[in-house]
Amino acid sequence: MSVILSVKNLNKVYKGDFKALNNINLEINKGEIFALLGPNGAGKTTLINIICGIVNPTNGEILVDGFDNIKDFRKTRSLIGLVPQELVGEAFETVWNTVNFSRGLFGKPADHAYVEKTIKQLSLWDKKDSKMMTLSGGMKRRVMIAKALSHEPKILFLDEPTAGVDVSLRQDMWKQVRALQESGVTIILTTHYIEEAEEMADRIGVINNGEIIVTENKIDLMKKLGSKQLILELYDPLNFIPSSLSKWTLELNSDKSQLTYTYDSIKENSIPDLLSAICSAGILFKDIHTKQSSLEDIFIKLVKKS
């Protein structure tokens, strides 16, 4: 996959020596969905705003499709669409006018057919003549997406796209984001909903205190940093773990009815041995199941570690 966005040694220091971004290096591949995760104040929005030209970097380099985002700002900005975190816009303007305004602002000639298609794709067509102030939060969010797509960008930044959006609308938006990816748009999203990143992203980046802690393919990340648990539901309560099982780090739950083995899913290959050792020890179990740690568990672990 070719790189569409490259951030090199990027720093941002605000007045009072507050370091918002510390030596950020990041590459985004063409056509992927990249989720940038981080706690509040980690630097996600600052990073996006610098890439989009809204905030000045202190130093560093950003290349968008090979173009420098300061020297070739016209080229790079026309490739980028941004859906900000806040639902902002002209309250008295209609959906149709505000989306057409965005297209013109980004230097594109009027194309009513394209704007109509975009608005229809986002299920806003029946609201095209409604004023922004009359729309619900979810609709406003979709208008923001329509505005960001109005100039046919190659990269779309979604800063907390489903914040405050109900579950069914959130799933609709996920579908729309996937459809955009299929149409060739590279998507970079920040989110507080880890399950959103888990559901949507091809790659994950975690940022904390202005530093990128990790960037990894989602599946690899979950394999690498995630742990797995094998849980045995016992027939009879077990008072202690027999010494013949000391090779494995087993845990008994408080009512002594459950035996849990936590292991690294990549390295572990002794599960059959464990099960036969348990049987040999005369421990009977009525059920067996496994549990994989979620992206949320991994995220919390990473942020705490950093």
């Binding site: 809204i54 016209r74 790079t76 980004f106």
Partner: peptide, 13 residues
């Protein structure tokens, strides 16, 4: 005031 200035600042203008 409304925050919509982000669009002008991020436009190729």
């Amino acid at each position: 005031f409304t925050g919509s200035i982000y669009e002008v600042l991020s436009a190729p203008i």
